[in-house]
Write a protein that binds this DNA or RNA. Structure first.
Length: 470
RNA sequence: GGCGCGGUAGCCAAGUGGUAAGGCCGGGGACUGCAAAUCCUCUAUUCGCCGGUUCGAUUCCGGCCCGCGCCUCCA
């Protein structure tokens, strides 16, 4: 019942356990709220969610913190372009992000702090770094972290010193303040004219915090100087997480996060996601193409988090069929999975699925096992080997629910809200049914074709018909 | 150049030192007036290429060919 998870720092599988023996305290780097998040972002958040769900369905308590980056170059620039206050701008996109998370059935973090809401905490950290000789104020009022003062720097990303300090010779820009070393990074950025009224007072003058410091400040505030696990997309390994470690450990001298969990990127139709390729799909984009949120979530779970996953519209199509297979199973056994925030912990016959998840969050293996179990149970039932006694059925129900809960998939059994069928359509369908009863196949087929052209598909069952949007 | 990852059926994608999960698509069949749905069934003698270790490698080692990520603010 222990989760083994690959740790970026040690490059090996390590058990996830709470250092306070109570709850697993973890931090996930959240979004910069300057626009709608895309499905690549959501891959990361969905996997962090599965991480939490696997722990909770194992009976483990968690404390989950995910931040909102609401001040940086992008948020400032775009809010100004739109002529809105930074606060109004980021609140709008925060609300959208939270709505999207809800649609994807992501558990709400226990704390969701924002950078702007924690300026004093960030200033305080920077002060301590300066006191400790690990940071310095540059002439323009910016403050930099002195990478040379932290010998451990580069351990997470395994970048050799020379790579870090010489890699950016191309990007060394003359007007880039006066850093002591090219590797040094900003903790506090002095106010610039283009920042408008987006600045805060500090011991070093007006300005705003650098990007990395917010995560150090907020994670330590909500989780303590040392906590169980930190996570994000692979691109954050360097420099973001490397810098977080330097800042945090530079102040406390203690191990910052005990475990590092990084999620590989999402590709789209075999290509890297990018603006120029116009493949930065948002949930809204996919809904517009007729896909459902659960189908998106399923696709994001269909590959191992350690490997880039190729998102394709074929796999979206496949996920719809796959999910309906699970729905059919639930219907067959009279199971009605619910989606409460209290997760089921008894897997019963479905335990092999959880076992796969506990093994480095192997979601594709888990899905494979789930389908195999579903098939085998269905077959057993058809052979009459499943007598359906109350205890057995209850165990099956709980196990199926636990599986849904661990993966965060909502298997809806109840019919969706039925589309309003126009009177005209219904009458046509009724006519067809009567033609059919009279064995007038030609007329019946004609009407069916007619309906199809009007956008409705008709399906027959033994004693009636169903209409659905084609 | 440095660090790291991958090449498995038409597509997505697991996995293992003993001979390839699962989903989708496709073929065949049952059912059906025909469809749809559903069910059954088939589909990689083979895991980029070449060597090596081994009784045996897709899985370990070496080389090669391709593709990809990161290397200062992108999840």
């Amino acid at each position: 019942m222990v989760l083994n998870l690959y740790d970026t720092m040690t490059r090996e599988l390590r058990e996830v356990f709470p250092m306070d023996e109570n709850s697993v305290r973890f931090y996930g780097c959240g979004p910069t709220v300057y626009g709608p998040a895309h499905i690549g972002n959501f891959r990361t958040f969905v996997l962090q969610d599965v991480f939490r769900r696997v722990l909770e369905t194992s009976g483990q308590q968690t404390f989950h913190v995910r931040n909102l980056t609401d001040v940086d170059d992008k948020t400032i620039r775009q809010s100004q372009e739109q002529g809105t206050k930074l606060k109004d701008f980021t609140e709008k996109w925060t609300a959208r992000f939270q709505k999207d998370c809800e649609l994807l059935n992501l558990l709400t973090p226990h704390a969701e702090p924002s950078a702007v809401g924690h300026i004093p905490e960030q200033i305080s950290l920077i002060e301590k770094l300066i006191e400790g000789g690990k940071a310095y104020r540059a002439n323009d009022g910016s403050v930099y972290f002195k990478v040379d003062a932290f010998p451990e720097y580069g351990r997470l990303s395994r970048l050799a010193d020379r790579e870090i300090t010489t890699s950016n010779n191309v990007r060394e820009i003359s007007d880039e303040y006066d850093r002591g070393s090219a590797a040094d990074f900003a903790l506090w950025k002095a106010r610039r004219p283009e920042d408008g009224d987006n600045f805060w007072e500090s011991p070093w003058g007006e300005g705003r915090p650098g990007w990395h410091i917010e995560c150090s400040a907020m994670s330590m505030k909500y989780l303590g100087e040392s906590f169980d696990l930190h996570s994000g997309g692979v691109d954050l390994i360097f420099p973001h997480h490397e810098n977080e470690i330097a800042q945090s450990e530079g102040v406390t001298g203690k191990t910052f996060a005990r475990h590092w969990f990084h999620i590989a990127h999402l590709m789209v139709e075999g290509q890297k996601m990018s603006k120029s390729l116009r493949n930065l799909y948002t949930l809204e984009d996919l809904f517009g193409k007729g896909y459902k949120e659960q189908e998106v979530r399923y696709v994001l779970l269909s590959g191992s988090y350690r490997q880039p996953l190729n998102f394709t519209f074929d796999s979206m199509q496949a996920s719809r069929k796959a999910l309906s297979k699970l729905t059919d199973f639930a219907k067959k056994f009279g199971i009605e999975p619910s989606s409460s925030s209290t997760l089921e912990t008894e897997f019963g016959p479905f335990y092999p699925v959880q076992e796969a998840l506990l093994s480095d969050l192997n979601t594709p293996e888990a899905l494979g096992r789930w389908f195999r179990l579903v098939r085998e149970m269905g077959e057993a039932r058809d052979r009459g080997e499943f007598d359906g006694n109350v205890e057995e059925l209850e165990m099956l129900r709980k196990g199926f629910q636990a599986t849904c809960d661990a993966l965060g998939l909502i298997i809806k059994v109840k019919e969706e809200v039925v589309e309003e069928v126009p009177k005209e359509i219904h009458e046509l369908a009724q006519n067809r049914w009567e033609a059919k009863l009279n064995k007038d196949w030609t007329a019946a087929d004609q009407i069916r074709e007619n309906l199809l052209q009007k956008g409705w598909a008709v399906k027959d069952s033994k004693d009636g018909f169903e209409l659905a949007k084609a």
